[in-house]
Amino acid sequence: MTLDLVAAGTLAAVLAGAALRAATPIVFASLGGLVSELAGCVNVALEGVMLVAAFAGVVTSAYSALWFPDAPLWLHPWLGCAAGLAAGTALAGLLAVFHLELGADLIVAGIGLNILAQGLTVLLMAHLTGDKGSTASLASFALPSLRWPGVDGVPVLGVLLNGEGGGGHNVLVYGALVATGLTAWALRHTVFGLRLRATGENAQAALAAGLPVKRLRYAGLLLSGLLASGGGVFLGMGYLTLFQADMAAGRGYLALAAVFLGGRQPLGTVAAALVFGAASVAAARLGLLAVPAEVVFMIPPLVTIAALVLVRLHQRRTARRRAAAGRAALLSPQRT
């Protein structure tokens, strides 16, 4: 009985770890989407930001080893990480310039930048490696994994904290958790967060109150680029250790869905991102059974749509209940 319990717990821990790993890029990107959305700029370019960040990270880490052969080995992945974050943020900055300075429509410019990222990464990859599929021929590095000492022998906890093989979770998995906490705190408890949200809530009023709306929107978009870049770097230097053409595979759009699904709240957004990660793990596990692969691939998009509808219905029901409660309070004879 206890053995069964341990086995079930281990399986659950393995699945939870897999879901967390699959969700990490979406968590990063959805936090990015949330920040810019709250600043009043929906960032459709998350997908492109992730692609560019993954590509820059992988290529820089590989070339860093070629350029600086004497440097310590731990340096290369971190150089790659920095380059990935910088490149992704730069792409988001480009979106900000096109939208805020040149008057481009935000959504169309975002789509344009996604296409640009898709084309440029493949083009440069073909130029550098002669391969249009992946950078498998480059010796790129992965960011280190963190291990918790002293829990290896513990039945379920060991697997949960240090992963199935006991190798620990990638540092960016923890990075996503930290970023979640920081973003939620900054949006709620700092002056900057308040001003950012005010800008998105009502730009006219924010402007009238003397807030630098344009600068805040720049900040929102750049920050969203930085966060989404974290997801991209994880894809190329944690989830896998190479860059593949179209590696983001729609995660940027999924992240956008998570923002709307989570009701534009930090924790809701991250919860939605975790659900998406879990859905993709479930799809992979179902693929092992007799279910046709096509049906399995339909699950995440259908879950997304169903969730959007359900959240809306729930919001409506809550609003109706509140209105009814308000009416009841007004009509009750004991009101003071």
Partner: peptide, 14 residues
């Protein structure tokens, strides 16, 4: 794809 993206960006930048 690059040219296409640049066309999109330049055309929408009023």
């Amino acid at each position: 794809l690059v040219i296409q993206a640049l066309i999109i960006l330049f055309v929408v930048s009023d």
